[in-house]
């Protein structure tokens, strides 16, 4: 990065919190980045697609103050993470929040189809990608005795279903991983928030197999996530009523569930 791309300095009368958004370029990530910038955060935007990332960065910085910096990165390149994290935290001037949103969804293309390569990619990005980032972040926040980790899971991680075993697995494992981090870190003053969105109108939704009821705009999801962050909640569904829907779905007995088509 060049010298001219320094962020607006944080002073007592113009304090900026510092967040990394991984998977920032489109959909929910872009909406949450816009929201956080408005709420007084300086941002490091991380995503694979450089053009979209630069466009979002330009949009956030258009107001005159330099609030966001772009870092093109593929989360499945795990070995790049520690050096990149050092650089980002140095550029941001600290770190308060890390949001992991990066995720892919490759449905196998039918309830009777199987595709290991796709399943593997989903686990590599949605789960191991998160672990690669959140491991050093957890270490930092534990040491600093402060910080907030936000992981974007999914209602799809609450139950293994016929349509997309690989995606369900990646998100269920992510939920468990975040829960374990929460149990480790709460005692060190660190909040770990698991977000479980229902259907959100993003590019990912277009690829989804089957019906997608109650789909919401990404901006609505971003507002919900921000509210949950402020309240330092542990788990939040967006929109909220998915909590009730999933409560029911989680309790459908297996002898029925394994015969269902969804």
């Amino acid at each position: 990065m060049s010298e001219s791309s320094k962020l607006t300095p944080s002073t007592p009368l113009n304090p900026r919190k510092r967040a990394i958004v991984i998977g920032a370029s489109v959909g929910m990530g872009a909406a949450l980045s816009r929201k956080l910038a408005k709420e007084g955060y300086s941002l490091a935007l991380v995503a694979r697609q450089k053009e979209k990332l630069d466009a979002l960065c330009g949009e956030i910085n258009a107001g005159g103050e330099r609030l966001a910096l772009a870092y093109p990165h593929d989360v499945s390149k795990y070995s790049e993470v520690p050096a990149l994290l050092h650089k980002i935290v140095s550029d941001l001037g600290g770190l308060d929040v890390v949001v992991f949103l990066a995720g892919v969804n490759y449905p196998p293309g039918g309830n009777d189809k199987y595709n290991f390569e796709n399943d593997r990619k989903m686990v590599e990005i949605n789960l191991i990608g998160a672990m690669a980032w959140l491991t050093p972040v957890a270490e930092m926040f534990q040491s600093a005795k402060a910080g907030q980790i936000v992981g974007i899971g999914s209602v799809a991680g609450d139950r293994g279903r016929v349509a997309n075993p690989g995606y369900n697995t990646s998100k269920a494992a992510l939920h468990t991983y975040l829960e374990a981090l929460r149990n480790r870190l709460t005692r060190h003053g660190v909040n770990v928030l698991t977000v479980k969105p229902g259907f959100v109108k993003t590019d990912m939704l277009k690829a989804a197999a089957g019906p997608t009821p109650f789909a919401i705009e990404p901006e609505k999801a971003a507002d919900d996530i921000y509210k949950a962050m402020q309240k330092r909640r542990q788990t939040v569904y967006t929109p909220f009523f998915w909590a009730y829907i999933m409560q029911i779905i989680r309790h459908i007995p297996s002898f029925i569930f394994r015969r269902m088509s969804f």
């Binding site: 007592p12 994290l85 050093p136 270490e139 930092m140 534990q142 040491s143």
Partner: peptide
Amino acid sequence: FNTFKRFENFGHS
């Protein structure tokens, strides 16, 4: 990463 600490100014601002 495990040497990361929170530092404040004297005025806590």
